[in-house]
Nucleic acid binder design. Structure first.
Lengths: 154, 154
DNA sequence: CTTAATTTCCCATGCTATCCCGAAAATGCG
DNA sequence: CGCATTTTCGGGATAGCATGGGAAATTAAG
């Protein structure tokens, strides 16, 4: 599970360290899949599991459904799978970096099943709005059918 | 899996380099199958697996079903299987190149289980529409019945 | 049958990405 | 606070890739 946020440097060869905790979340996989976000100017990333989910969802659409090609292109046509080097870095494409406006710093934001990669200056203005929306959405966090916790566990 | 997009040159002998990552996606196969798209003016390509899928789907149709002959012709009758040379190139037919309007540049677009080959100038105008449709179809990618990820894998 | 044109195969080369090693920085631990 | 481990980051060596050209083999034309 991708947790917390980490800022990583981008060197002259466009190499970026994937935060160690994110690599651990990938549980043994030696690569990570990265694609441009469909609705924000950041990148998104995840592991094999997430890619398989996308693949399944897309395959469920009929071949002539225009949304099938659109999603295939947006995710697979523009995304890339990166293998880590021995230091846990990937070498990113100029196209993806440009899409997100990333130059020398990349901000990794964990979102549970996936993560985002932002140019730090683009993410910072979003913070207060996100926080307000989260506060107003608190009630969505309550369980509906979970059984109450025991007073004294075990 | 065919990922990302690559532009490749077409030389005077009609030789085209298949992107190395696509060749890797073909996992040891020494050839690739290419056919004209059924609904767009581009070519499509894939490996043995995809051809077998088409073959199975077509075989399920009754021999007298006119659609069987139509699909057989459109895919197998007009398509071609190309073997790579030692540099990973194929020599394309004038008919297929003409169909897609390809002259000196060919744009390879990965779509997961297959790829497209476009004349770059024909693909470029499609981008914004594809991207908008993908954004509006995002919700199709959501899992319906996937179990949550473990906090600490392993 | 001879010659010309085309196609196939093979090698050469500049370029880029990948791998490998190690230093610096950060983190955790006693 | 100091040491050990993990993580990040820089640079050089190496291998792989895209592409061009030429010789051999095949096909077509005269």
């Amino acid at each position: 599970m991708f947790l917390s946020s980490h800022e990583s440097g981008v060197d002259a060869k466009k190499r970026v360290s994937i935060p160690a905790s994110f690599r651990r979340a990938l549980a043994g996989e030696d690569s990570v899949f990265v694609w441009p976000s469909l609705d924000k100017n950041c990148l998104e990333g995840g592991g094999d599991r997430l890619v398989a989910r996308f693949q399944n969802a897309i395959m469920r659409l009929k071949p002539m459904d225009q949304r099938r090609e659109a999603l295939s292109y947006a995710i697979f046509g523009r995304g890339r799978s990166y293998k880590f080097d021995d230091g846990g870095r990937i070498v990113m494409d100029a196209e993806l970096l440009d899409f997100a406006g990333i130059t020398d710093k990349a901000l990794f934001v964990g979102l549970g099943d996936r993560f985002q990669i932002w140019a730090p200056q683009d993410h910072q203005p979003r913070l207060s709005e996100l926080q307000n929306l989260a506060r107003d959405s608190m009630d969505l966090l309550d369980p509906f059918d979970d059984e109450p916790e025991a007073l004294h566990p075990r």
